[in-house]
Design a protein around this nucleic acid. Structure first.
Lengths: 154, 154
DNA sequence: CTCAGATAGCTGTATCATACAGGTACTTAT
DNA sequence: ATAAGTACCTGTATGATACAGCTATCTGAG
């Protein structure tokens, strides 16, 4: 085992903090916008964001991109459709496929949740310097990229 | 390096990256230590860590600390007991209470998962500078602290 | 053109984490 | 000694997810 004791403590701390973040993030999500209008669950939110970001696409593409099983995406999409947040249209170039598009309502709902969360972060990080915020955003981005690269090294 | 920029963009990016991290973190957990010996789920892992860290304690204390419902912790603890990872002993000073202690096997299992994850991070962050790792760890720590403070603003 | 194999999406079923409500046993204050 | 509070457990519900199997469709070889 090659143990770089100095660095492994940083790694250990990262591991700890990510685990904690997962726990608290879950609680926060549950608390962010309860009651009122039915909250978007984690997957629904990322689906809408991805649609808004990368344009209409089919279930398989979404599943691949979000690291989810196709059946999960199917059900999420069905729920989103039931709530009028996305529409399904037959893929004109492939009779098997369905193209998922966000509706205006879906985009709006997504934006509202996004804004609420951003506001929440602004609130929590009120006393952070702009540099620290920026650095955190950048490092998290790199961390996620590293995660993605590891899960799909192709 | 123009950081004299609208701060909300950093907040937005943080929001985005945290959401992504939640998604990928889930996948990572599922992949970390599959098959072989039954993985520790998120809650079980934090419970064991907390026990190792803060010593034996009762269900209510764990639930409060981990932001979980008491019933959830009860069930998690039952599962951990079934697997021989913790022991329950009656609280000598309170007939209603039960003190939860990690067993050697529990500590060892927890340490194994922890080591595997830390190794994984070391792997993924292989090309990061020690400074960046350290900074990420520190900023995540502050982020979690901010989350905790928000959830318990007493 | 026809048929075999691949692919897209859906459905059935299972698991797991979690919450809330209600019950039982014990403790504490009056 | 009784009422109120507390600790934990159990019943039940929800929601996210996976895997396996199904149907409809597409594509390519003959």
């Amino acid at each position: 085992m090659s143990d770089d004791h100095d660095e492994s403590s940083a790694l250990g701390r990262i591991e700890t903090e990510v685990a904690l973040l997962m726990r608290f993030g879950e609680a926060t999500r549950r608390a962010t916008g309860t009651a009122e209008h039915r909250v978007l669950d984690r997957a629904a939110y990322v689906i809408l964001r991805h649609l808004a970001d990368a344009g209409p696409q089919n279930v398989s593409a979404l599943a691949a991109r979000l690291n989810l099983d196709g059946s999960t995406v199917t059900r999420q999409v069905s729920a989103l459709q039931r709530d009028g947040l996305i529409t399904r249209t037959p893929d004109p170039s492939d009779g098997r496929g369905t193209v998922i598009s966000p509706t205006p309502a879906g985009l709006q709902r997504m934006a509202a949740v996004q804004a609420a969360r951003t506001r929440l972060y602004g609130d929590m990080l009120a006393d952070w310097s702009p540099e620290d915020r920026s650095t955190l955003a950048a490092l998290l981005g790199r961390l996620n990229q590293a995660l993605i690269n590891r899960n799909r090294p192709r």
